[in-house]
Design a protein around this nucleic acid. Structure first.
Lengths: 111, 111
DNA sequence: ATCGATTGCGCAATAC
DNA sequence: GGTATTGCGCAATCGA
């Protein structure tokens, strides 16, 4: 839609002559200011949000690394013990590797 | 700084009379449009970035949950086995709970 | 039909 | 000596 960018001086399309008109313009100008301040605030908040999320992300990645290492260590320990210990009747027939994978899947789909 | 909002018609402060002036204005108007398009693009990208980060975040949280559950399961399994199996010479003198905690700390500070 | 809110646009000052 | 950015006002439009 054509927003009429500054024509010459057309007739009193908007207001009447100058009384109500001026008040109207002033009120609108204030509204415009409010609106723009608001808009800038929102933009700023969005930028801030990006930083917050980046930080949370970093923390979570560190957590995942830590947990992954812990888990790797435990799995190794577990498997080592299982293969060294002949008396592992409790785990007979158990494929530990698979068991752990299944556990993973179960947790995931359970979430 | 006062940006002179729409005064009457002062002298030719900006351009000379009307030849160069018009060209200058037209060029500036184009520049303004470019600048504003650019600005809006950047804002939009920031909004998109928030969504990307939110998604990554969700994935990472799920990962942490899964890993935590796996780890909990393994620890339990480990402890259960340790206490049920008399022939746990390999683990004699090992405080598993503490071992796991130490492992955690090590991984964390190692990161 | 009446208000404020939002938006495209142009101007002028200024930042670069 | 130009473009880019920004505050501001106008008018059209949206929205309630």
């Amino acid at each position: 839609m054509p927003r009429r960018g500054r024509a010459k001086k057309e007739g009193p399309e908007s207001g009447e002559d100058s009384d109500e008109y001026r008040k109207k313009r002033d009120r609108n100008n204030l509204a415009v200011k409010r609106s723009r301040v608001k808009s800038k605030q929102k933009t700023q908040e969005t930028v801030s949000r990006v930083n917050e999320l980046k930080n949370e992300n970093t923390v979570l990645e560190e957590k995942v690394n830590t947990l992954t290492k812990e888990l790797g260590f435990l799995k190794e320990l577990f498997l080592a013990h299982a293969s060294n210990n002949v008396d592992k009747s409790k785990f007979d027939g158990l494929d530990l590797q698979k068991l752990l994978e299944d556990t993973s899947s179960a947790s995931t789909s359970n979430n």
